[in-house]
Design a protein around this nucleic acid. Structure first.
Lengths: 197, 197
DNA sequence: TTTTGTTGATTGGTCAGTCAATAAAAAATA
DNA sequence: TATTTTTTATTGACTGACCAATCAACAAAA
């Protein structure tokens, strides 16, 4: 079997360290040394593998995005009906894996950084488009096209809003409540509820 | 009449400069010199009036919050029914005055900074509470108490989400669409629409 | 002549990024 | 197998830039 080099291990360790550092500070202005220190290596090594700081940050964002994408794909694969697809998307976004303080803080920080970095903005737009299109695929069969478009927009905003508001609170995230709110919105939109009150 | 000193003028100019600088960069890491320069004074003067950098940033946030509060109070005063109060709150949040690129960017940046600064976090919590309570005052008379609580949470998240997502796009903000989405949510929640799609 | 307004110059600290040097592992060669 | 050579992994030390904050000094108004 091929004995792997250190590179992938280090890259991964550095990305993990970046997430935890960003999560703890709550912002992207963590020093490269801080991140490298957490990963148990020198800052020089971080630069060696990722080039300038942006490189490491972008790689971190890509990693978070990739994990979310992986989870989403897995969840969608299991969902058979459009309605189930909607719930699956919601569930993934607020899953144990995604709705963690570090990840939430990282999202927020990346949103801000995206104002400066075109590459980060590009990545976030990809995420936004993917979420939108996933939501649409669940909504299109259930409501009128125009309505689906708007509903997707709302649900996406609702999810992002719940993330951002979560960042202000302390203590463990309450995923169940968040899911409840989004599910309620969806249910209402689909006319699933008792028509009054 | 009392001839005012320079202080209030400078303070105001510095805060305005801070908002525009933050808006342009899209983040709080603007230098004091940059802000002072825009205000047409030296960085030393900024420190003279606001002390350390945090002081200026906090004052800026307080200013934004105060303006939002003022607008909200004015709008609520005109709204006679609970339903009108809800619309008034939404309208204020997406008004020409509030839903501007600089202000949006500032909000986002402050959310991130709040992770580090307890004072900023305190301010943001005040905003969140005020929004929540305003929404509740409109909702309580119209839906069941428990439902009002949840709906307020959702609407607030929706608004914040629309802000954050707006920050990713370029071009002028489209307030009308945002208002439309929130109003639609409210209408649905209140059972105002034709009961089927 | 005291108070208010203002700045240029300076300082001390922080940090990204580089680089030359070293160690260790792998590959090539004898 | 023993050896040299090359590649990979790693760092400490350094540098150059940037920037918040201070302060002594100067100007203007009261």
């Amino acid at each position: 079997m091929p004995k792997l080099g250190m590179e992938p291990l280090r890259r991964r360790a550095l990305i993990d360290a970046a997430i935890s550092a960003i999560g703890e500070r709550g912002s992207l202005d963590v020093t490269v040394s801080e991140i490298a220190g957490r990963a148990g290596v020198s800052s020089a090594l971080a630069h060696h593998y990722f080039g300038p700081k942006d490189g490491l940050l972008q790689a971190t964002m890509r990693h978070i995005l990739a994990e979310l994408g992986r989870d989403a794909r897995a969840a969608l694969a299991k969902a058979k009906t459009p309605r189930a697809r909607l719930s699956a998307i919601v569930a993934v976004n607020f899953s144990e894996q995604q709705f963690r303080p570090e990840i939430i803080a990282a999202w927020l920080a990346f949103y801000v950084e995206a104002q400066k970095s075109t590459e980060l903005r590009r990545l976030l737009r990809i995420y936004a488009r993917r979420l939108h299109s996933n939501l649409l695929s669940g909504l299109k069969p259930l409501v009128a096209p125009a309505e689906a478009e708007l509903a997707a927009e709302s649900i996406a905003a609702l999810i992002d809003g719940l993330y951002i508001r979560r960042a202000l609170k302390d203590g463990a995230p309450n995923a169940a409540t968040a899911i409840g709110l989004v599910e309620d919105y969806i249910a209402t939109k689909l006319g699933e509820r008792t028509c009054m009150k």
